[in-house]
Design a protein around this nucleic acid. Structure first.
Ligand code: SF4
Ligand code: SF4
Lengths: 150, 150
DNA sequence: ATAATTCGGATAGTTATTGTCCTAATATAA
DNA sequence: TTATATTAGGACAATAACTATCCGAATTAT
């Protein structure tokens, strides 16, 4: 019961993109290098982000990635769900157990509410806010030492 | 990012206990049989429940398990945490990434809030409520067809 | 054409979860 | 005391999920 490490890579990768000049296209290898991540796995993560519409990808020479939405549109929820998918937190295999409640079971309903509550919290935090923090505290985040606009 | 199947076993096992006469001691094998669960794994689950103080265990002849708290004291949060432990939903390995934010990082704070929110929802549902539902809908839950008080 | 780059699939390595088994400890009863 | 019933706990095996690597195909700029 933990977010996978792919979420961590995604969050920090997106933050790295957000810190570039707007519309700057970044190489995957640069993202990986800056944060000491395995580039081959990060590639998979970025493919998921692209599919989810959080980043735009460009193939070929001078290709790479850039954000597909403004940082204030991208929330932590978008990121985690892009990586982890949207399977419910609790889905009992009633195959073992004969049970005809199905739709209106207080247990399942409770988990559904809890899950909604979890993601609605994550939805409140945007990449913009993370970026703002990163700008304020840039000196303490060595992995983010990138040239910024201007 | 899903609650493990052990949680499902635990919830339904506790519900089975709750449906017995108060202070009735139940054999693990009966719980497993009623729900067609692997008894050896259910044993592990019940050991965790015992450690967490949700059930009392009795060894030896006429031994078994019973609830250690009244059904209205046991919440879904207690159960899930007894099984899954309390490791945080998100704990980035800053080993890869040099970052000095640590304590006051908006990302980590967001996940912490989200996690609290998740568990606070789960805390609102008690075994008593599940039991009441089970009593109302007994006919639709074949795995729970047990003799009840009286 | 050539070089640079992402895409997608296959696959391998690693870790976590789920399940089994065996022995020890404990409790009851004859 | 001995036999029997039952949980505790550790070691282990099987399975599944996650993480990581690799390669050929597609795409694009030069
Ligand atoms: S009681 Fe609810 S969670 Fe359990 S098997 Fe029935 S429908 Fe599923
Ligand atoms: S930015 Fe926050 S989550 Fe990322 S490495 Fe720094 S402290 Fe950890």
């Amino acid at each position: 019961m933990q977010f996978s490490i792919g979420c961590e890579y995604a969050i920090h990768g997106l933050l790295y993109l957000a810190m570039q000049r707007p519309d700057e296209v970044v190489l995957l290898t640069d993202v990986a290098k800056a944060q000491n991540l395995p580039v081959s796995y990060l590639a998979k993560v970025f493919q998921l982000l692209a599919k989810a519409g959080l980043v735009k990808s460009f193939r070929g020479a001078h290709g790479g990635y850039m954000l597909a939405q403004t940082p204030d549109q991208i929330t932590l929820r978008d990121v985690t769900q892009a990586i982890e998918g949207t399977t419910p937190l609790y889905s009992p295999l009633s195959s073992r157990r004969e049970c005809g409640l199905a739709a209106d079971c207080v247990i399942k309903e409770a988990f559904t509410r809890a899950e909604k509550s979890l993601f609605s919290e994550l939805e409140k935090v945007t990449l913009k806010e993370m970026m703002d923090q990163a700008i304020r505290m840039r000196s303490r985040m060595k992995w983010l030492q990138v040239p910024v606009a201007g």
